[in-house]
Design a protein around this nucleic acid. Structure first.
Lengths: 123, 123
DNA sequence: CTCCTTATTCGACGTTCGTCGTATGACGAA
DNA sequence: TTCGTCATACGACGAACGTCGAATAAGGAG
């Protein structure tokens, strides 16, 4: 909802990077529908595809062409869906695929989806 | 279909059921991202789940609780994504899962997704 | 013919989505 | 300290989404 007035920097210091510990859902709470939705975007699919090949990457090193703030948005969607894990180290935020967790929850799903995507990248 | 009697419809003739032949994408044009998006909605997932079990059903016979016009919308999303096929017969519109087509395009995908959904229906 | 059933199209509504520019914060190097 | 880099939060924008009610159309039963 719209909260109205919120002067410039007066009111909120606001939590920034490193404050809130980057909430990740428990493995058992990963929702299939959220995962499918997260993977239904080409940018996010590319991110997951890249992470399946390489183990860990920093945010800025993905082969996608969107603004940094857009990328942050996509990472949040993937993280909140339980698809990726992010940890912080200095100014970098390292990202991994939660492959084992996904495998435990939905055996065989991720690789089947990625294989389907390789077969027909963007139609 | 015959076009003959356009009675008092002064304003909008407009295409209605049966006029436009219910466009379905070719098998080779089915886009994975569209399929994943189509399946990321609980109502549509339930429809697909139902169709995988039963072979063919009429629109009104699905175990979902939404308004008829909403259901029509969901069927269109599934149909345009290439997930279902619909044919008309009298006042009924029969719906089937395009299982063989999906299997040919993305082998093993649909059953893997449905198995994942059975495992954790709506979290 | 009339009436009921089936399922649609249309239009509207509030919400969510993907995108970006700008400002901000935290870290590390000079 | 200052400066540059990495990545974020915020706010805005238009587009798409899920939902529904009302009107419409066609088929079938009487």
């Amino acid at each position: 909802m719209y909260d109205g007035h919120r002067k410039k920097g007066v009111t909120l210091p606001r939590s920034r990077r490193g404050r809130e510990p980057l909430a990740h859902p428990d493995t058992t709470d990963i929702d299939l529908l959220d995962v499918l939705h997260a993977l239904s975007d080409p940018t996010r699919m590319t991110i997951v595809q890249t992470l399946r090949a390489d183990l860990e990457r920093a945010c800025g090193t993905f082969p996608v062409d969107v603004a940094p703030s857009t990328l942050t948005h996509h990472f949040r969607v993937l993280r909140e869906a339980g698809v990726i894990h992010q940890r912080e180290e200095g100014t970098r935020r390292w990202t991994t695929l939660r492959f084992e967790d996904l495998e435990r929850r939905f055996p065989g799903l991720i690789d089947r989806i990625l294989a389907s995507y390789d077969r027909a990248p963007t139609a």
